[in-house]
């Protein structure tokens, strides 16, 4: 639920713009970075839990029975590309290149949808292989970690889609590129978290 506050930070237009800021940075950008710092500990704790419990399940299915590297590699690639797409979109937004912004932003949102879809499919697939949420320690810590990451992806996708909607209506001129920049920072953070999760959870766990 901490993610709720992220959305609020972004959408909060209250900053008294008549007031100067002490640092050469917008309040909202500082806030999202602060929030990202806080999120580091959120995911660190989830990852710690996963690692501390790795190999401690008393019964299967175990990671080696379940994971297949192919699909998740595709998802990883998509998420990485979406980070690239969103910097391109931001570049467009800042330079007032509306078409560039719309194109790349649409692609980013598509990537988000694809990744979230990949995860839903993966969960569904694992569930049918006999890995329910409470099946064992591995399943619970796996679903909790990747599920919360997935929730971040979903929220980020919704956020970017909202900005896309605004952009289509022409409400994201260059002076408001910050709206996109903040969402993009959040999106990149979600990406770097996956950069850790992917090898730690999928690749390392597959060792027999």
């Amino acid at each position: 639920m901490t993610t709720t506050t992220a959305a609020l930070d972004h959408h909060d237009h209250d900053d008294a713009h008549a007031h100067h800021t002490s640092l050469p940075i917008d309040n909202r950008k500082l806030a999202i970075w602060t929030f990202i710092g806080s999120e580091c500990l959120f995911f660190a704790t989830l990852i710690s839990t996963y690692l501390v419990y790795a190999g401690q399940s008393v019964k299967g299915p175990f990671p080696t029975d379940i994971f297949s590297v192919g699909l998740v590699t595709a998802g990883t690639a998509v998420l990485l590309f979406s980070s690239f797409f969103v910097v391109m979109a931001l570049d467009g937004a800042q330079k007032g290149d509306r078409k560039k912004m719309l194109t790349w932003l649409s692609l980013t949102v598509l990537c988000g949808v694809f990744f979230a879809g990949m995860q839903v499919y993966e969960f569904w697939h694992f569930y049918h292989l006999g890995l329910g949420y409470s099946t064992n320690l591995f399943s619970a810590s796996f679903y909790t970690l990747t599920g919360f990451h997935g929730a971040h992806v979903a929220l980020g996708t919704l956020w970017l889609a909202t900005i896309l909607k605004d952009a289509i209506k022409g409400r994201v001129p260059p002076k408001k590129a910050l709206n996109l920049e903040i969402a993009a920072l959040y999106w990149h953070f979600v990406d770097v978290v996956w950069i850790i999760i992917f090898p730690v959870v999928y690749l390392m766990q597959m060792r027999s």
Binding site: W33, T34, G37, C40, A44, T45
Partner: peptide
């Protein structure tokens, strides 16, 4: 620094 400090604490915890 903000990010790095958070990451340091995160790594300490893990």
């Amino acid at each position: 620094w903000l990010f790095l400090f958070s990451l340091i604490i995160a790594v300490i915890v893990i």
